[in-house]
Nucleic acid binder design. Structure first.
Lengths: 144, 144
DNA sequence: TAGCCGAATTAGACACAGTCCAAGTCTTGC
DNA sequence: GCAAGACTTGGACTGTGTCTAATTCGGCTA
């Protein structure tokens, strides 16, 4: 079972998914998973921290970072590196790419289904691809 | 005239290129341009700071950051955002892409000449592309 | 050559994302 | 209930990058 972001996960569903990914489902981890998967957005660690504490119990900064890194390691989420000042976390782990609006900082998914990249050179010997990220940087026309 | 990284720029050549890009060629800016363009590498701000001060006069951190941002703005260099903790600066402003080795942090150019991306969705209304970055994340096979 | 003025540079304080650590608190198995 | 391990926590810490106020530089005029 793969987790897809959508508005209303039950606690039970989240617990099951965490378990399936080899993650011990603690209160804080469930809270964080809930916030991540209940909204179809790309969140930064500090946004997440604010949202989690807004909704419920006190969760510390350290735990948020620990948990995000655990989720990353277990491939429950992806990180998106487009902004030099902070990392965004993406609950959608399907292969896909991003529009990044330079002016607003907004990040939008691009479905990878129709995209084809041709002409990539061969990889060096003994090296393996971890992933291909395509970032289309955009800006509002008048804002030049 | 476009600047291409290669080992031995003369001071005069650098001064000319800075002027052509609307940049007042001061000592520090020439030093920084020299270090950037004399090596075919992607450098971070702190690496650059070390190299500049190694070679010659004292240049402050603030000046290095100011100058890099000025060079960026004047399109003399590009920034490459692949590592969450720091930005790399790329003296090659031709359209091209990157291999990023997750294990070593090494960044390698991919010539864009042969690459074609098809199937990108249409841009939203009133929005304009600033650039398309493709990052192929790689790692050494045994290191998994 | 002296003197002026705007531009560039500087040191150091600061902001902020993210990590580390040692102490405390839950869980779980027995 | 208890012990052991796993998880969480606050707060100190690190490193990148920015800001600011003061100084210095460089080019211009006379």
């Amino acid at each position: 079972m793969t987790l897809k972001p959508h508005p209303n996960y039950t606690r039970g569903e989240l617990v099951e998914v965490l378990r399936n990914h080899g993650i011990n489902p603690t209160h804080q981890r469930i809270e964080i998973a809930y916030v991540l998967f209940s909204r179809c957005e790309h969140l930064s660690a500090d946004q997440l921290l604010a949202l989690v504490n807004d909704r419920n119990s006190e969760t510390s900064k350290a735990t948020v970072y620990n948990t995000l890194n655990l989720f990353l390691e277990k491939k429950l989420i992806r990180e998106v590196i487009v902004d030099p000042s902070k990392v965004f976390y993406d609950p959608n782990t399907d292969v896909h790419h991003h529009f990044y609006d330079i002016d607003t900082g907004e990040l939008t998914d691009i479905d990878a289904a129709d995209i084809e990249v041709s002409g990539l050179p061969q990889l060096p010997e003994g090296v393996v691809t971890e992933g291909v990220d395509i970032i289309v940087r955009i800006r509002s026309e008048q804002a030049v």
